[in-house]
Amino acid sequence: MRTTATCLLAAMIGLLLICVAWQAAHPWLAWPRAFAEAGTVGAIADWYAVVALFRHPCGIPIPHTAIIPKNQQRIAESLGSFVEQNFLTPEVILGRLSGFNAAQALAGWLTVRENSAVIADVMAGSLPRLLEDIDEKDVEHLFERLVIPRLRTLDVSRTAGQLLKILTEGKRHQPLLDRGLSAAQAWLSSNVDLIKAKFSEASKYTPAPLDAYIVNKFVEGIVALIHEVVANPEHELRRQFDAAVRDLSGNLQRSPVYRRFGRLLLRDCIRHLENGRYYGVLLDHLRAHVLADLGGKDSVVRDMLAGTFVSIGHGLANEPSIQHKLNAWWLDIAGLLVRRHRHQLSALITDVVKGWDEKEVSRKLEAEIGRDLQFIRINGTFVGGTVGVLIHACVSLVWR
């Protein structure tokens, strides 16, 4: 474009020279001469204006030229101020963000297992470095400042009773009874000989065949009872087990004896932890297990983290009220950040622009907008020529 505009200027100069040379023989050349003269002036004037923005014309330090390099500092400050006042305002930022349900978008993104796995990988990848940076003193400080003071105020008995109550709601404790019964059956079946031996020691005056018969029948009866309890959800033993668990839960929560025992037990555990200096052992144990898990093909930590994020996504997607609260919370944070740090952001823009090389700034700006600026030169040539013809026509009419 620069070459085109320059060639057009040369064409105007060439036309002007031709008209000057042949006008005496051909008077009508006064019209193209007027066009060429004014076009040449317009092209030179616009060339000067365009070049003056970025450099000194022909290298001559004419006042008020090389405007952009000379005013880079002022331009940087003006640009930072312009961005701060017109873009980094709470009204603009919050106006843009308020129409977007960010919580719903985040929930939809997290529900995709691959997306949650990306976050899980990042978090899991940072764990080895985090664990390496933690030493025994850090763990001790954590326990002494945060864990142990809260443990001292913890009502272990009441907490255990509440957990037991939650466990028994909806008969969630019955599978534990089934597992216990299955374990008892397996133990009885595999230790019949031991039971016979102990029975024979306790019953010295009965024949061995009779002892074996009694023990076999006893074991068979217990196994049959276990099968009945497992097969019948309404078995009497299950109801007795439920009653015993409820009584235990109530006693743990209300009985002064149980609560005092819980406090003493917790106090002994805290003393044992403090006196044994187990902080380093705990740290080494945790570090070894986590690093071994992360180094394996199927990492439980990564899978657990990914599953947690997926669950959070599903839960958030199904709770519009929580989405509304999160969106409001994010908007409050965004408004607070804008009000607090908008000046720092504009100052960052100002400092970056000030740090640019003057010639490099001019070159980049000219490369970005230079095409349009060369159109100004081209248009100036034709506009100037047209105005020159109009002036020549007016002068001719007046003299006639």
Rank of each mutant, 00 (worst) to 15 (best):
residue 268 D to M: 09
residue 172 R to K: 08
residue 339 R to A: 11
residue 336 L to A: 14
residue 351 D to H: 10
residue 149 P to A: 01
residue 217 K to N: 13
residue 335 G to R: 00
residue 276 G to L: 05
residue 36 A to M: 09
residue 257 V to P: 04
residue 205 Y to W: 14
residue 43 A to Q: 06
residue 28 W to C: 10
residue 333 I to W: 11
residue 201 E to A: 15
residue 291 L to F: 14
residue 76 A to K: 04
residue 100 F to S: 13
residue 237 L to M: 14
residue 163 L to M: 00
residue 288 A to R: 01
residue 314 H to A: 11
residue 124 A to N: 10
residue 93 I to C: 04
residue 285 H to Y: 14
residue 157 S to E: 03
residue 397 L to W: 15
residue 245 V to P: 06
residue 276 G to K: 05
residue 183 A to P: 09
residue 50 V to S: 02
residue 221 G to K: 11
residue 346 S to I: 11
residue 174 Q to G: 02
residue 325 K to Q: 09
residue 350 T to H: 06
residue 386 T to L: 14
residue 394 C to Q: 11
residue 27 P to Y: 02
residue 223 V to G: 01
residue 70 K to S: 11
residue 226 I to Y: 02
residue 214 I to D: 08
residue 153 T to Y: 08
residue 38 A to Q: 01
residue 100 F to I: 14
residue 31 W to P: 15
residue 225 L to V: 06
residue 58 C to N: 13
residue 112 V to M: 05
residue 35 F to I: 12
residue 305 L to S: 03
residue 151 L to W: 00
residue 144 E to N: 11
residue 20 V to N: 15
residue 60 I to R: 04
residue 75 I to T: 07
residue 148 I to P: 02
residue 215 V to D: 01
residue 110 L to W: 07
residue 265 L to F: 12
residue 77 E to T: 12
residue 288 A to H: 03
residue 186 A to T: 08
residue 170 G to L: 00
residue 48 Y to A: 04
residue 67 I to R: 03
residue 246 R to K: 09
residue 344 Q to P: 10
residue 248 L to C: 03
residue 114 E to C: 01
residue 298 D to T: 13
residue 142 L to E: 00
residue 78 S to K: 13
residue 11 A to H: 12
residue 353 V to T: 09
residue 75 I to V: 08
residue 289 H to P: 10
residue 140 E to D: 07
residue 320 P to G: 06
residue 244 A to R: 08
residue 248 L to A: 05
residue 306 A to I: 00
residue 303 D to G: 15
residue 375 F to D: 07
residue 10 A to Y: 07
residue 394 C to T: 13
residue 93 I to N: 01
residue 15 L to I: 10
residue 184 A to G: 00
residue 274 E to R: 12
residue 199 F to W: 10
residue 219 V to A: 03
residue 37 E to L: 15
residue 214 I to V: 08
residue 224 A to W: 07
residue 339 R to V: 05
residue 313 G to E: 01
residue 139 V to D: 02
residue 41 V to P: 06
residue 131 L to G: 04
residue 263 R to G: 09
residue 206 T to W: 15
residue 91 E to N: 13
residue 264 L to R: 12
residue 129 R to S: 15
residue 210 L to P: 08
residue 79 L to I: 12
residue 363 R to A: 13
residue 190 S to W: 04
residue 207 P to M: 14
residue 295 G to W: 10
residue 286 L to N: 04
residue 23 Q to G: 10
residue 138 D to G: 01
residue 303 D to E: 14
residue 49 A to Q: 04
residue 129 R to I: 05
residue 319 E to R: 15
residue 397 L to K: 13
residue 202 A to H: 13
residue 311 S to K: 15
residue 224 A to F: 05
residue 281 V to M: 07
residue 95 G to N: 07
residue 3 T to G: 15
residue 336 L to C: 12
residue 113 R to Q: 11
residue 5 A to W: 01
residue 12 M to S: 14
residue 304 M to P: 07
residue 223 V to L: 05
residue 71 N to D: 06
residue 182 S to P: 11
residue 244 A to C: 12
residue 250 G to F: 08
residue 159 T to F: 05
residue 306 A to Q: 02
residue 113 R to W: 09
residue 360 E to L: 08
residue 82 F to W: 07
residue 125 G to D: 06
residue 290 V to N: 07
residue 219 V to T: 07
residue 350 T to A: 12
residue 63 P to H: 03
residue 313 G to C: 03
residue 183 A to H: 04
residue 174 Q to K: 00
residue 209 P to A: 08
residue 202 A to D: 09
residue 383 V to H: 05
residue 333 I to R: 15
residue 339 R to E: 13
residue 164 L to A: 00
